[in-house]
Structure formats: structure tokens, C-alpha cells
Design a protein around this nucleic acid. Structure first.
Lengths: 340, 340
DNA sequence: CTTGCACTGAGGTGCGCACCTCAGTTATCA
DNA sequence: TGATAACTGAGGTGCGCACCTCAGTGCAAG
């Protein structure tokens, strides 16, 4: 049987009350007593029973994910994970919900944040673009005692808040490395396709990509980013025009999370089999494309990992523990057909 | 506030005792009552408080990892993770210990297993080579009520037991893919270095490697595996002799977890910078070698993930839950300098 | 009608701990 | 020396649930 606090008290030669004071950092304890208790803890290997603790404390975690509206594929994946983990963690004293807000409307977000009641919520994970108003609102939230995690938002960090993000520079750089190595020739052009280059994510990926290509594969020439703006017909037009104007395209890099339509447009004009193709995010489509050879590599950043990480951090903060990694970077994974 | 069992009883129009009988599947409950309770659960969104459950049940998990003796680097990593997680999970009602046994001695292992007392242990994770005796012993253990996870052992599976393994074929195949693509030439020889080819792991990796090379890169010629037998001097001799005898070696694949000595031997004779080098396992050495360019890619299979996975499965079984993935394959990760 | 059986309700106990009160004991300093 | 503050001990309560006992209730077979 594991030793209880009562055993600890006995071992330390103190009363349960004093042991309790030490364990919970309450005042009115002598240094001697603290020392005795800690020594006894070591000696008998006492570990608090977390079940009893959380029962006695009536503890429960209530977290909210604040996400953008919009139909981005990766965002949908994220939503799904949030809901999934929400139901899974209900049996773990953790209630998770989420709202979607127009993240362009900084004022609206700030207002929403300002109305959050600390009695109803223990933490929020916020995915919103950089803006002074939002940042101030987040700071005020933290003063109210609500833990804040800046979630996947490529914004400048509020230093006091924790951060869960992915390294888009690394993701782009990895794509560059694979394309550079896989094309098997020293010269050629690389087509880069994005939904939009407005977002920081896209910019960072492109930056990482260009850096590697320029440094390590100077013979390759990355073309300017093609922006599809999620418009199928228009995107296809531009893509086919670019393919016709450049005879020596050797590779395609789709840096947005939506790869299906761009690849369909490319395959209408060129042969995906002879091109080196790298896309982002593990989806049913990208897996299938990997298997049948249309895509050579997938750069993936697990959304489930991101959500779990945010929850872990908020929990740790509520318990006044240090999170294992306060600034959690989601790993950049590389998938080939061989290691799917 | 979350509804309690008392609220549930009220909502169902039944007594606490009946609700308790339903919740815990005890006998002497009418179908009507079961229906009412389940309906009420849905209606008020009742979820058992796991802290109270585990407190009342005096539940605690006691698991043991049974591992081979021997100084393999990856095994040491595994041991470290087991110990790490052991102390980390003590505060989670989970006591984990481990033993190391001579796994070649099937009879000895079987005997050890047969003496395990179900009152002292809830589950074991066993890493031992295939043998009928061990398999029978495991089966008997399961009959005694101890959960069994076959852990990283490339043996034929006991169908009733859960399994945590890594896909060494995929690992080798991925290495083959990277080497094939990275060498940037259609012909050349590939040096393959292993500690020993006796182990199933090595054989499977080599098999995956050869399959990809033969299928996709027929111009490349993998040389027979060099076995170092963990003997530094002898290994270095063989390696340098092979390098001298084959002028057109374009790549090196180290398929054992120990890469440092083989690479040192290679670099004494050849220039690692011009060779394509792929090794296994993320270690301080392999990370450093990736950074400075001596190694081009690392195939990694996270040992921590393996240990966590085994623990998760055993816990689920103790709670009579289905594990999320009963047959858990550790992901084969690919690391370049860019996504370390 | 009795007997037996399946079902239900009421109530209690204890899991290990947090948190509270109140009385009692030291050290500390004037 | 007494007063004040700092400490300590004893004991109790309740968190939500599992598990136990015992006293019913209704219903069917004999």
C-alpha cells in the first residue's frame, strides 16, 4: 500500500495538521517542521494521491478554445480534435468548449475576451492574429486569473502567456530540402502554390523554403507564389498558364493545407508522376496521393498534438505546476509512402 | 457544477442504490431501471467523477516492464524512459518497475513469468524473443488476470495480448527511399553497417531497405551487411577494407542504433560530407551529426512513445476499456537538419 | 396462502485528502 | 516578567463514489 499523509505525519513525528500545512504551503510552519516533513517524504516515498486531492479540492478544469471562423481544412481538423478531446476529457474533470469568432475583428475579439467571467472559466486558448487590442485584452484576462495560451497564432507573443505553435519556417525549410534532393537535377524551376500569401503562416513557410533552396540548391529557381484564393476555376487557370510558360518545372510545392484542387489543376496539364510534389498536412487525400505516387512527401504538423499540448499547459497552470514545455512547438513530421 | 450520482438518481426517479447498481453493472436490476438510468444520464449529461471512483475503489496500477539484459543503446534509452515515466506517474496512481532478464533463456523467462503474483501486479510489458514456452507462460499469466503487452519484441504475436511494436520494415524502407533519392545519381554502391544481423529487427530493416532499393533504385547496389559485433577495432578494419575495395560507394546506411563508431571508422577513410548517410535513432550524437552535415537523415522511433503506449494500453485493460489502438505501431519519424 | 425470488430503497462506512476551528505550546522581545 | 506572535496538535467535515447490510415490495409458482 502506498503511504498516506497519516503515515507521513507519523514518520515525521508531527501531526497531520502540520504535515498538511507543509504540503499545501500554508503559513505558520517552522523551518524545522518543513525539513522534517520533506525528509520523511523522501524516506517513506510519499506521493500525494491525486484522486483524493482533486476530490477534496472539488477541482475541475474549464477551458475554452477561441478559434477563427472560416472553412480552412486544417482548421476543421483542429475543430474536430477539440471536440474529440472535449468529450474524451469529460471523464477527466476537464470541460472543454470552443467558440469561433471573426478574428479579423480585433475589437470584437477584445470585447469578447473582456466579458469572460473568471468564475466560469479557468483558461482559454486563443488563436487570433496579432493586434494590440487583443494583446491587452489577454493581459487583462490573465490578471483576472484566467490562464491564457496563445494557440497556433503566428502573432507576436505576449511574454507572460504560454504559447503553442508550429514552426512554419522549419516546415517550409524541410519541404525545400526534400524538393532540392528529390528532383535529382541541379537546375529547374519549382512551382509554389498557396491559397493566399497574406497569412503569416504562408509567409514563414515560403521564407523557410526559399532559404534552403537558395543556400543548398542554387540551381533551382522557385517561381513566385501562385495564389488560388480558394477559387477553383481561377486557380486552375493561373496554374495551367504558369505550367505552359515554363517548360522546365521540376517540382511543385503546395504550401497551403488544401492540396487537392491545386494538384488537380496541375495534373490536368502535366504529369504528377514525373514531378516532385510536396504538400502539407496529413489528410485522407494526401495519404492516398502519397500511396499512388502523385505526391512524394507530406509535411505534417499534428493538430491533435497541438490541442493536447494547449490543454496540458492550461492544466499545469491551473495546478500551479510548470508545464513541461511552456513554449511548445509542434513537431514537423515528414511522411513518405514508406512510413505512412 | 457537474451532476453527481445523487442528481442522477433524482433525475431518474430512482434511489442512489439502484443507480449505483446500474452504473457498476451489478445484478438485481430491472431492464426498466437500466433504461431510466441511461436516459437520465443522457438527459443531464452525467459523467462519473473519476477521482471519486478511483478513491473509493482504492485503485492503483502496478505494472512491470520485463526487458532484456544487455547494453544496446536503444535499450538504455528505453530503460531511461521507463524509469522517467515511472517516477512521473507515481503521482498518477501508477507504480512502474522493471526487471532485466536473459531473454535468450526462454525457460528462465517462462519460469519468472509463472511466479508472478496477480495480487502484486496488474500488468506486464514483455520484451522477449519468440518462443513457445514464453508464449504459453504469457497465456497463463493472462488467465490469472494479469494484462500482458508484448513490447517491441519482433515475435509472433499471442493473439489475445496487446502489442506495441515498431515497424522495422517501414524504417528500413524509409531509409532506402531517402538514400535512393538523396544520392543524386543512378548508379553506385551503398554500404550497410549493422552491429549484428542476428536480430529480427536488423533483418526486417534490411529487408525493407532492400525492397525499396530494388524496386525504385535498381541502379544502386547495396553491399552485404557489415557486422561490427560492437567491436570497435575489428569493425573499423572491415569498414575501411570495404571502402578501399569499392571505389564507387555513394551512401552509408547504419541500421543499428549505435552509429557513432561506424561513422568514425568511415570518416577515417572517406569524406562523410560527400556521402549520403542515414542512421537510426535520435541521440545527442545523431542530432549533432545532422546539424554539422555528417549525417543526412535520421530515422527515429521514439522510445518514450513506445513506453507510454504500453502503459496506456495496460491501464485501459485494467479499467476494462478498449485501448484506442490495441496494436500500436510506433511511428517512423524522419529527421533532417531542417526539422530537428 | 405460503414460499421463494427478483427487485428496490434507505442508510451507513470509508477511500485520502483539503480545509476549518480552537485550544494549547513554544520562542521573542520588551 | 508578562505579552504578543509564531507555531503545533486534535479533531471534525465533506468531496463523489463504491460497496455493504437490511428491510422492505411485488409477483409467480406451488
Amino acid at each position: 500500500m502506498r503511504p498516506t499523509a497519516r503515515d507521513l505525519a507519523e514518520a515525521a513525528g508531527l501531526s497531520l495538521a502540520t504535515v498538511d500545512r507543509v504540503l499545501n504551503g500554508r503559513p505558520n510552519v517552522s523551518k524545522t517542521a518543513v525539513g522534517k516533513v520533506n525528509a520523511a517524504i523522501e524516506r517513506i516515498g510519499f506521493v500525494r494521491n491525486p484522486a483524493a486531492v482533486s476530490l477534496a479540492r472539488k477541482k475541475s478544469y474549464r477551458f475554452r478554445f477561441i478559434l477563427p471562423t472560416g472553412g480552412d481544412l486544417y482548421l476543421q481538423e483542429l475543430l474536430r480534435r477539440v471536440e474529440e478531446l472535449g468529450t474524451a476529457l469529460k471523464s477527466d474533470l476537464t470541460d472543454i468548449d470552443h467558440v469561433q469568432l471573426q478574428t479579423e475583428d480585433a475589437h470584437g475579439i477584445a470585447h469578447y475576451l473582456s466579458e469572460i467571467d473568471p468564475d466560469e472559466l479557468d483558461g482559454v486558448a486563443v488563436m487570433a492574429p496579432e493586434s494590440p487590442q487583443v494583446r491587452d485584452a489577454l493581459a487583462r484576462l490573465m490578471e483576472k486569473g484566467i490562464r491564457v495560451v496563445q494557440f497556433l497564432s503566428g502573432q507576436e507573443k505576449l511574454p507572460a502567456a504560454d504559447f503553442v505553435g508550429m514552426d512554419n519556417f522549419a516546415a517550409g525549410a524541410t519541404a525545400g530540402k526534400i524538393i532540392g534532393k528529390f528532383v535529382g537535377q541541379t537546375t529547374g524551376k519549382v512551382m509554389v502554390i498557396a491559397e493566399t500569401m497574406q497569412s503569416l503562416d504562408s509567409i514563414q513557410r515560403r521564407h523557410g523554403f526559399d532559404t534552403v533552396i537558395n543556400d543548398a540548391f542554387p540551381g533551382l529557381q522557385p517561381l513566385p507564389s501562385i495564389e488560388t484564393h480558394a477559387n477553383e476555376r481561377r486557380g486552375a487557370q493561373i496554374i495551367s498558364r504558369v505550367l505552359e510558360n515554363h517548360a522546365d518545372i521540376a517540382a511543385v510545392y503546395v504550401l497551403s493545407s488544401e492540396a487537392r484542387l491545386p494538384l488537380a489543376a496541375v495534373s490536368a496539364v502535366a504529369d504528377l508522376g514525373t514531378l516532385t510534389v510536396v504538400v502539407h498536412e496529413r489528410t485522407p487525400f494526401s495519404e492516398e496521393a502519397l500511396r499512388d505516387g502523385r505526391v512524394d512527401a507530406v509535411i505534417a504538423q499534428d493538430p491533435g498534438h497541438a490541442v493536447r499540448s494547449a490543454i496540458r499547459i492550461m492544466r499545469a497552470r491551473v495546478d500551479f505546476r510548470e508545464p513541461l514545455a511552456a513554449q511548445d512547438r509542434i513537431r514537423t513530421e515528414v511522411l513518405f509512402r514508406e512510413n505512412l
